[in-house]
Amino acid sequence: MLEVRNVTKYYGDSIGVDGVDFRVGAGEILGLLGPNGAGKTTTMRIITGFLPPTQGTVEVAGHDILEDSLEARRAIGYLPENPPIYPEMSVRGYVEFVADIREVPRARRQARVDNVLERLDLGPVQNRLVGNLSRGYRQRVGLAQALVHDPAVLILDEPTVGLDPKQIIEIRSLIRDLGRDRTVVLSSHILPEVSQVCHTVAIINRGRVVAIDSPEHLAGRLKGAETLKIGVKGEPGAVIAVLEKIPGVAKVTRIDGGSEPASGPVPQAGAYLLESYLGCDVREDLFFNLARAEMPLLELRPMDLSLEQVFLQLTTEEEGVELDG
């Protein structure tokens, strides 16, 4: 239903989105997860045709967003980052207006508008001016606007922002409901939201998709492989060289920032993440190899990474942790 192929967007010289590539089928919910400024909104704006990509293509329901823009836009319902409301209109008037520009047939308009107002619990405020509503209501008006034409593809930029906890639960279940027979892409920086609602999570950082998988797999992938957090005293370069020679070690990452000079006179204790291949217990070799190299092992702790930690690692470290198992 939705194919994003190698989309890149430059803003002048700076890069907004870098080679984003994914496809989402009908009945699937994809979550874009990433810190603020990671490129989630830019990605969504490109999908909806609001921004043209510098490179790459987007296909919505079989229509290219640039070549066949009107047809592609017909298939999309879009909730932008800030609900695009007209403060001087009534809730009902606003949703009717969107129904008109979204080509809902006149005969069905009334029923569609009633339907979305009811689904989003906006009935009681339908005659109030949108500008006088609270943030949570405006967000729901924004959702109503995205749903009124019953689109096959829904693009929701931070759909639960500004809602209270009860509403968040309702909107999540609404999105799950909608996702049964539609294609849904939502963005969020809240992990539980993504893991509860989405079938697939794309972790996005600095404009790049650093991992894409089901929430269970993302969390499981790093659990499956052993990860040890160790503290070793010694010159970091030499320590890493020793660690990497240990059979079964997949990857060594220094995690304490490395703020002290690499060639300081006194060897400092450093913390490292040691990933080993599945089924390899490297702890004995680790102990003996470090002992031979006269690098005291100060700490040894097995790590279980939650999705939260995966997310933090992927998005806060320069290199990130390679998720190849």
Partner: peptide, 14 residues
């Protein structure tokens, strides 16, 4: 300024 441009430009409108 209000961001409603995004609504109009992503609707099937020329």
């Amino acid at each position: 300024r209000m961001g409603t441009e995004e609504l109009l430009m992503t609707a099937p409108l020329t």
